[in-house]
């Protein structure tokens, strides 16, 4: 139930490559842009030191920024998401103690919990990001609609990601 540091580094690279060369290039119905890279933040271990969590989020966001010419936007949104993550875990999960090194996934948590946990964080991230990008409330409903639709698409990608990481186990 643990992942080595090396596999997290590999995951970081894969997530960035998928985001930059696949998802940023396709264009679904004009204004939906999924941001699958947040999957990396979602799957970090439960007991990761909080400051490392924030710094990793900042580095990940900035990497995406450099590739997509959006200086600082993704960094800011991803740091916000990382900041909210411990709070969301505490309020939504019934379990309070986690084995060291275990991470959110379908193989050790309830599927319904994984769905709630990832959807809340993805929605926060996307809403913040899209409003930061527009930088005004003049197109409020268009922006809101864009962030909700993109969140849904990202959510589908993230669930596929979780499914590849580990399948749910049958309870005995």
């Amino acid at each position: 139930m643990q992942k080595s540091t090396l596999s997290y580094i590999g995951l970081f690279v894969i997530v960035v490559l998928i985001q930059v060369f696949v998802l940023n290039q396709i264009n679904i119905s004009g204004y939906i842009n999924p941001f699958f890279y947040v999957f990396f933040i979602l799957i970090l271990p439960f007991d990761i030191p909080r400051y490392i969590l924030l710094i990793l989020a900042f580095v990940l966001g900035l990497t995406i920024d450099v590739f997509s010419d959006t200086a600082g936007m993704h960094a800011s949104a991803t740091v916000l998401m990382a900041f909210l993550r411990p709070g969301v875990i505490n309020t939504t999960s019934i379990k309070k103690e986690f084995e060291s090194g275990s991470y959110p996934g379908l193989n050790n948590m309830d599927t319904s919990w994984v769905i709630t946990y990832s959807f809340i964080l993805i929605l926060c991230h996307h809403t913040f990001l899209f409003f930061l990008e527009t930088f005004s409330f003049s197109e409020f409903f268009t922006t809101l609609w864009r962030s909700v639709l993109s969140s849904l698409v990202t959510f589908v990608f993230v669930m596929i990601g979780f499914f590849f990481e580990g399948r749910p186990k049958r309870k005995k």
Partner: peptide
């Protein structure tokens, strides 16, 4: 740390929207 990183991100964001973007921060 959250606050500090947000401030850094916003400084980068604002710098880049008003001045010419620094050489490494774009594609």
């Amino acid at each position: 740390i959250f606050l500090a990183l947000q401030v850094v991100a916003f400084i980068i964001l604002i710098q880049n929207s008003y001045y010419h973007r620094s050489f490494w921060m774009n594609s």
